[in-house]
């Protein structure tokens, strides 16, 4: 079974998704609520193509962010920790970073093996990326702009607990 570029195009047509086809890839873009591309537009740019002789479908939001090389190590650490934390909390899709040029992108791979790609599968993969980009945009910007890594929920709870216990002591002393 597996899939081909033509088959993916016909599924996108059926789902009324606008796209362009260039060489061996399909390119499309999705509107986002929060994520902004490098030009400040609310748009996530994506490429879709089959790999491994069509046995895997790859959907990739290329150039989602860029961390230019030769950054302070603290900032690089903050970004990598944030990416790691997001990936830890996320199913299926994941962020990846090319440490050569600093490109950060979001990808999802759907293993098809001998199954036929369905419109539902394709749409789920395609729509997952803008959702993830929106969900993580604030955290990614904090890491990229200010070098502040994404905290875990446990860390946030601990900060809150400490603050509230101190506050309670303060109220008690009044």
């Amino acid at each position: 079974m597996s899939t081909t570029l033509d088959e993916i195009c016909s599924l996108l047509d059926s789902a009324k998704i606008r796209y362009g086809r260039r060489e061996d890839r399909i390119r499309t873009g999705f509107e986002t609520d929060l994520y902004e591309d490098h030009e400040g537009d609310n748009c996530l740019h994506m490429a879709i193509w089959p790999e491994d002789d069509g046995e895997t479908l790859r959907v990739q939001a290329y150039g989602t962010y860029l961390l230019p090389p030769a950054q302070f190590p603290e900032k690089l650490a903050a970004v990598q920790r944030t990416l790691n934390q997001i990936n830890w909390e996320t199913k299926t899709a994941h962020f990846e970073m090319d440490i050569q040029d600093g490109e950060i992108r979001i990808s999802v791979d759907i293993p098809l093996e001998d199954a036929k790609l369905t419109e539902r599968q394709l749409m789920r993969a395609v729509k997952m990326l803008p959702d993830l980009a929106d969900r993580c945009h604030s955290a990614m910007r904090q890491a990229l702009d200010d070098g502040i890594p994404l905290a875990t929920h446990e860390e946030l709870c601990l900060r809150f607990d400490t603050f509230m216990i101190e506050r309670d002591k303060g109220l008690g002393e009044r």
Partner: peptide, 23 residues
């Protein structure tokens, strides 16, 4: 609500979710 928060602060382990909702 302050009484609720006082109660959180006196719990053996701070109930973060309840506390943050009260806050």
């Amino acid at each position: 609500l302050e009484r609720g928060l006082r109660l959180c602060a006196r719990s053996k382990s701070y109930p973060s979710i309840s506390g943050s909702r009260l806050a």
